[in-house]
Structure formats: structure tokens, C-alpha cells
Design a binder for these strands. Structure first.
Lengths: 206, 206, 206, 206
DNA sequence: CATGAATGAGGGTTCATTCAT
DNA sequence: GATGAATGAACCCTCATTCAT
């Protein structure tokens, strides 16, 4: 009996998680399509295949959806960043590192639309902005670890600006990489790599 | 009588132009402050010191304001670009060219807030997007002329991608340059110049 | 087999009754806490320790809960009224009668919160209002019996108004008696008794 | 020109005041009909003959309407109370005083429905409750002044309870006075006067 | 032409009720 | 019977747009 109950609860939790994932995926798609501001909760619910009211069983309001979406995607990105901290990855020269790093991140963004839309959301409410800023700090911390391994003789403070700039450069080209056809995408990705290599090479060497 | 009428009409047009400029300036300020999506027509009217209804004597709807604002700013940018087509300017090496060019464009954006907000508006309605794309083409054409002078042995098609990329890189760093204090601004501008120089130098030489 | 089935059904009914009592008790508490209008069926279910869906196995809708609650409480009140129809109770003078009667009714309301909330519900839907009015008629009938014994030379029609007025007066002071601390409660109860005694004494004598 | 503008502004303010009065009157009517909780802003707007959006040009939200309505009615009641502080009014014996006082207050409530609905609103949000409590204090203060003149040898603290009780008694009978036909109304009003006279006479004398 | 009150469609959100499990 | 996630109508409120003055 207790076992049955347990199984049921487990299943329920699985369904709940599924729903949450559905919603976050739908939200990401909608954010990517119309932007955060123009995204309506009804759009998100419809895309997730549920009713407007169901959204609120999982999230208290629209901002919470955006925040959860951002947290989810950021978490996955962090895991990707960490795979580049293995001894083999660290041993890579700058060029092959960028080569694979950028490919992976671009691919991730292709499969998880919406992250970019939130990053670019011109103006968002204060609480959401704070939450995103927090995630951002986490991201910059990870990226810093990535570069600290290749550029150890500097303080974190000295790495801050080149890191921030590089991140922005990447974000700036990402929409171009995501919006075109495959050929255009590859062309943009090549330019991305060139831009970042040429920007970083004088700073941290090959 | 005809002369009198003419003078009166001229004066009215002058006043109309003044009003339009007031509105566009207000719109730019508001766009910069809260973003295009969160900008309300009432905010713009209030900032322009006129009533909401008066807005609609000059513009049919909110999008038309954004479009006119963008057209206005773009026009002024084009004039700036043209000053860099003089024989003396063309004779400049890449580094000093970027040095003065970027300073000028950053300064312009400081004095004309809102342009960036529109460029970054994550997603906007189709008609407005088309209008902005049109202005964009004009801008890219001007920038192309600028670089064609320094890189003549290539086709326009070959210049297209590096140009677009460079433009996006510049836009990506512009918010950082505009949001901080003077010291931070200068640091970002230095990075801007480094990024663009390092990206372009291998392509078009010094 | 039939016996077994009977026993099972009886047990089920007992459990059903238990559930109904749980729900009604929860409903009363919630009504008292937030008022009928602000009471949600989810609140009531949660307080009763059951799921929202289960509520609807016993009651067709929210109003039915209120109605059943009112009927339940009214029924208990009627039983209390009836204890004051015993020969000894009838023999009491007005003052000692009020003394014990009011104490009992106030105590009952302390132990059965929610009745007052329904009585005071500013406006409720027509069907529920009708149902409550019906219960009301029953209550007024009982109270009339109570007073008919002390005021026999009048028609029921003549007793109607003083009775209704006295009932309202009592209800009006009840919230004050229920909301304060013990000392305040006693002070209010003293005033209740004074009010009703002074109102009734000229009519029916001591 | 300035004069013209002044006149226009004066007229606008007059229209604004008119609108506010329309809205408050509509709100009062609706509150009386369906209660505060069940009153929707659309109902109030429709009753006031304006669009839902217009409501929000005068009041920030639904609660503000209730608060303004209560403040308005309370203000008028206070003026009525004050007329009973004239030397002639004070010279009246308790019975004739109640006679005219109650008639006036009942008449006022007939003409200003909604006050009672708010007073009886079982549960309202904290901010509104605070605002109403504040108005209440003002009302009790006025009533205290009224009775202090007839009962001078007591402290305000001693007058507090009888005053509060009397106020509740009055409110409790008011719905009965307002809901019936003229004959029923008069009968209730007679009872009101009797109740209050008999309650007060032993305390403050004739 | 200017005004700003008025409009009303549409957004986010709640909650009584249903239904698959 | 019990569950609680799902539903969707209806609420409060905003804001682009209109129009009487």
C-alpha cells in the first residue's frame, strides 16, 4: 500500500517535472519568437498544450517562468562549461579550444531557443533583472575559471573586462548564427571564432 | 493675402517640425530608459510636453514614431559616415581611423539615446521590422562605401559579412559604453577599438 | 454475503458522514476566518484534510456546502432552543432566562465559528439566500415558541417584529463578543443581556 | 487667454468631480446590491455609464473606490452629526433627540446606499480595512461628542462601550429598515428608537 | 490644431469545477 | 471513493487609440 502510494507520488512528480519541462520549453520557444515582453502567458500555455490556469500550478507568475527558464538553461550551460575544464580540454591551444567550444555553445542555443531573447530583453522588471544578474554572475564565474586556466598570471579583476567583452561579442553574433540557413550559420560561426581568437590571442597567447 | 497665408503656413510647418523633433527626442529618451516594448505613448507625450492626442496628429501609431525616430537618427548617422569619406579621412590608416570613427559614433549615441534600444528590441512587429531593415540596408551601404575605399580589391558581396559582423560587434559593446561612468566608458571604448582593429587588420591590412 | 455488504455499506456511510462533518467543520472555520465570499473551495478541502475533488463527492458546489453547514448548525441551535422549552426553563423570569440563554448561545457560536459569517454575508446568490431564509424561518419559529410561552396573549404576527429585532440585535453584538479577549467578551455579553432585557421587559414584563 | 484657460480647467475639474461623484454613487449602489466582494469594476463602470478603463483615471484600483466612497459618505454623516451639536439640539431630551436623529440617519442611508454594505463586508483586504477603521474612529469620535453633551460626568473611556454597542444595534436594524416597504420601514424605525431609548435611558437619563 | 478624458480589447491571474488515474 | 492536475470563464487592470470640446 505504502509502496503503491510511493510509486504514484513518484509518477506524479515525474509528470510534474515533465509539465515543467514542457512549459519551460514552450516559454523558450515563445520568447525566441516574439521576445519576452510580447510573450503572453496564454501563448506559452497554448504552445505547451495546456490551459492558461495550469501554468499557475507550477509558476506563480510570468516572471517566475522566465526566471525558471533562465535558471534551467544556465544550469545546462554551466555543465557544458565544466566539460571544458578537463585536463585534456585545458591542454588545448586557443584555436582548437574556441573551435569546439563555440560549436558546442551555438549548437546548444539552437536546441534551446529563448536564452538569447532573455539576454537581449531590453528592459525587464527589477526582480527578474536581479535574478538574471545572479545567474549571470554564475556564468561569468564559470567562464572565468575557463580562462584562468589559460591565463593564470592575471588577477580575476584583470580578466573581468576581456571576459565580459568576449561574452558580449559572442552574444552579438549568436542571433546571426541562429537565424540563417545552414551555410550562413557556418559562415557566421567561422567569423565568431575569428573574432574571439583575434581578440584573445594578443592577450593570452595561442 | 496669398503671401500672408504662405508665411503662416511656413510658420505652422516650422512649428510642426519642432513638435516632431520634440516627440522624436522624447521617444528616443523613453526607448532608452524603458525599452521599446515598455515605452507607452503616454510616457512619450508627457516627456515631449504635449498631450497624448497630439501625438496622433503627427504619427498614425506607436510604430510610426519608432520608425520616424529610427529614420531620423539613421539620417544623421549617414551624414557622419559621409564625413569619413573625405580624401583626408580615407588616407588614414586603420588604427587612427577607428580611433576617431568610434569616438564619434559613441559620442553620437550618448547624445541620441534610443537608437540602440531599437536595434536591440528583441522582437518587433513585422511592418516596423521591415522599415528598420530598410534603414539598415542604407546604413550597411554607407559603411560599405567607407570600407570599399580601404579594401578595393574585393566585391561588395565579399565585404558584406565582415561588415555586418563588425557592425554587430560594435552594437554589442555600445550598451556597456553607455551605461557606466566616464572611466568605464573609456575602458570599453578601448576594447571596442581593439576588437575591431584585430578583426579587420588581417582582412584589410593596417 | 448480503450481511457483509450491508455492514460494508453502513461503514461506508459512517465514513461518509465523518467526511461530511469534517468538511462542514472546515467550512465553518474558513468562513469565520475569511468570510464566505473569500472562502475558496480549495481552502476548505485543505482544512478538511481532503482533496478538492473529494469535496464534490459530497456537495455539488460551494453554495451547497454553505447551505449544509448552515443547516447543520441551525439544527443544533434548534436543539438548544428546545432545551429552554422545559417547564423549569419556562418558569424562569426574563432576566435569569436571558442570563443563561445568551451564555449558551454565545458559547455555541464560539465553538461553531462560521454561522455568524454566513448570517452577515452581505449578499449571496439567490438560491443560497432562499435556503438560508428557509432555515431562518425555522429558527424564528423556534424562538417564537420560546417567547410565546412568556407572552401568550399576543398573536404570532404581533410577536414577529420584536422577535426579529431581538434576533438582529443579538447577531449585531455577537461579533464583538467573539473577537475580543475574555474580559472584553464578558463585557459585551453583559451589554447584550442589558440590551435585550430592556428591549423586552416593557413588552412582556419581567 | 489665461482667463479662457482658467475657465476650461475649472470646467474640467467640475466634470472630474461630477465623474467622481457618478462613480462613487454607482459604486454605492452596486455595493448595496451585491456586496463589496461581488461588486466588479465593470459593474460599477457600467452603472456609472462609463467604460471600465475610465474608472482608473480617477481611482488606482477597486479598493480605492471603496475607500473614497466610504470617506465621502462618512464625511457627510459627520456633517449631519455636527448639526446635532447645536445648543437647541443638545437641549433636547433623549427621546425627541433619538426621534429626529434616527430619522435623519435612516433617510441618509436610504439616499446613500452602499455604506451599510461596506460596514457589513465580512472580510476585506488589510489596507482597506485600515482605512475604514480610521474613518470609524472619526465617526465614533463624533458620536462621542454627541453623547458627551448629554452624559458629561463620565470619562470617554466609560462612554466607549455603550457607544459602540449602540452603533452596532443601529447598524443591525438598518438593513431591515432599508429593505422593506414604507410601512415596514416605519415599523422598524419605531423599534430602533425604542431599542436605543431603552438601552440608553438607564445610563444617561431621559 | 491641441487637449485629455474616454474607450475597450486584451493581458496576467484566480478559482469553482471536472475528470483521468 | 479519492486524488489533484487540468480547465476556462471571469476578474482586475493597462494602454494604444479616438473624439468631443
Amino acid at each position: 500500500m505504502g509502496e503503491n502510494q510511493q510509486r504514484r507520488q513518484a509518477q506524479r512528480q515525474k509528470r510534474g517535472l515533465l509539465r515543467v519541462e514542457q512549459i519551460l520549453h514552450a516559454a523558450g520557444t515563445i520568447f525566441a519568437e516574439v521576445g519576452y515582453d510580447n510573450a503572453t502567458t496564454n501563448m506559452i500555455a497554448a504552445r505547451a498544450g495546456i490551459s492558461p490556469g495550469s501554468l499557475y500550478q507550477f509558476f506563480p507568475d510570468k516572471e517566475a517562468i522566465a526566471q525558471a527558464f533562465a535558471a534551467d538553461v544556465t544550469e545546462q550551460l554551466h555543465q557544458i562549461y565544466d566539460t571544458f575544464l578537463s585536463p585534456e580540454a585545458i591542454a588545448l591551444l586557443l584555436q582548437p579550444f574556441l573551435e569546439s567550444f563555440i560549436d558546442v555553445i551555438v549548437a546548444f542555443n539552437q536546441e534551446h531557443p529563448g536564452y538569447l531573447a532573455l539576454e537581449l530583453a531590453s528592459t525587464i522588471s527589477a526582480p527578474l533583472a536581479l535574478a538574471l544578474a545572479d545567474l549571470h554572475r554564475g556564468t561569468m564565474g564559470r567562464l572565468d575559471a575557463l580562462f584562468a586556466a589559460r591565463w593564470p598570471h592575471q588577477t580575476q579583476e584583470q580578466r573581468r573586462l576581456p571576459l565580459l567583452v568576449a561574452y558580449r561579442l559572442f552574444l552579438a553574433l549568436l542571433p546571426l548564427a541562429l537565424e540563417g540557413n545552414e551555410e550562413q550559420r557556418q559562415a557566421i560561426v567561422r567569423e565568431m571564432k575569428a573574432v574571439l581568437y583575434r581578440y584573445w590571442e594578443p592577450i593570452i597567447g595561442t
